[in-house]
Amino acid sequence: MKRSFRTIAALGAVAALALTATGCASATPEKLTIAFVMGAESDPFFQAMKVGAEAEAAAQGVDLIWQGDPANYSAETQLPIVESVLAQQPDGLVLIPTDPVALQAVSDKAVAAGIAVANVDTHTNDLSKVVTFITGDNTDGGAKAADAIAKAIGYTAGKTYEVVIGLTSATATTNVDRQKGFEAAVAANYPGIQIKDVAYSESNPEKAATNVSNWLTKYPNLKGIFAIDGTNASGAAAALQAKNLVGKVALVGYDAYPANVQLIKDGVFTALIAQDPAAEARLAIKTLVAFLKDGTKPAQRDVVIPNFALTADSTDAEFAQYTYVATN
């Protein structure tokens, strides 16, 4: 899950009134209603999720209540939204809890009211009463990035390769997981890859570009860059282009923003690790509807949808599936 926009999003709350929440509550009696409460509307991750949720709701013939704070990823803003959604008495609730503890009580309350609950992306501490928990795997994404870099630089055992990682902050959990996965994969499979340096972009792509520009000066033999999220990916791509090093330094990014996907085709990105928020949403709604109709429980409660490495060799269908879609 991608949260580098949280800071902006929080500040953007001033403009919150300008945003109108989508979704409608006029359910006809025989039609099922699924409420979907996500983290922050402004985050591209949830924008992509919304596309999947709307498509699946239409396919299943259920009404969808799509709700969430316009910009602020926080339990404080999410709690009252969940409460008001429950007051509309939906049949099912897909919840992306912004805090594992703070959202527990309201989740239990929904279950007690006979509402089927699913968790997506993140989960509340007690998962025993939810129908399903569906998430992406950031650690696996980090490992896939290591594989992509090793492949692009033609990794041969016994040789050494210099690589750097562009991070957004020291604490963002997604950053931490992806970095861990990357480092573990390097240690296990590519001992010749040396991670020389890390730096923070503070959610600003221009700062990400600065970090990479300086690395390119400091490490003339730099072989690869792992840009850990969309912001770092944009900045690193700009820096490589400015220094005319496209194709000479392998760049693996994260998050399939349309602009960055285009840069795979242009050869700037070796690979983009993509999550599939739309698939998470589709599966959650599908599972809930099946459970509500005849009590079918999924074979496994917890489902991990692996990250996917988009490369120039990916098929059009894969590009279509993983590229984030802007909703306006």
């Binding site: 926009f5 924008q47 602009a259 285009q262």
Partner: peptide, 10 residues
């Protein structure tokens, strides 16, 4: 963020 959906516009 509203105009760009939070993503860079190329």
């Amino acid at each position: 963020v509203i105009i760009s959906s939070g993503m860079p516009i190329q």
